[in-house]
């Protein structure tokens, strides 16, 4: 699975994107977040306050409960500030 990070989420994790093998028991975005949180301090810091995290699966905005699979592209970022 491809994961992308933007804005301060990327800064905290210190990574723009990564390929991961999705663990078998991870089937939703929320479970993916829980799994990522245990990968290190940067991840823990980026995902400390989930009210500040927005998610896209295959480039569509989704909620934390959204189902995910191995071939999905998942992106994590803060609320957008364009315009």
């Amino acid at each position: 699975m491809k994961i992308l990070y933007f804005s301060w989420v990327r800064d905290r994790i210190d990574l723009g994107n990564e390929e991961i093998v999705l663990p078998e028991n991870v089937t939703t975005v929320e479970q993916l977040v829980n799994w990522l949180q245990s990968k290190g301090d940067g991840y823990a810091s980026a995902f400390a306050d989930l009210s500040m995290i927005r998610v896209a699966v295959n480039q569509e905005h989704v909620k934390l409960g959204h189902p995910i699979g191995e071939n999905d592209e998942v992106a994590f970022f803060p609320p957008v500030t364009g315009g």
Binding site: F6, S7, A56, H61, A75, F77, P78, P79, V80, T81, G82, G83
Partner: peptide
């Protein structure tokens, strides 16, 4: 268009 763009389009200002 501008109201929706500001809260939905994935842009971030530094």
């Amino acid at each position: 268009l501008i109201d929706f763009l500001k809260t939905n389009a994935p842009f971030w200002k530094l």
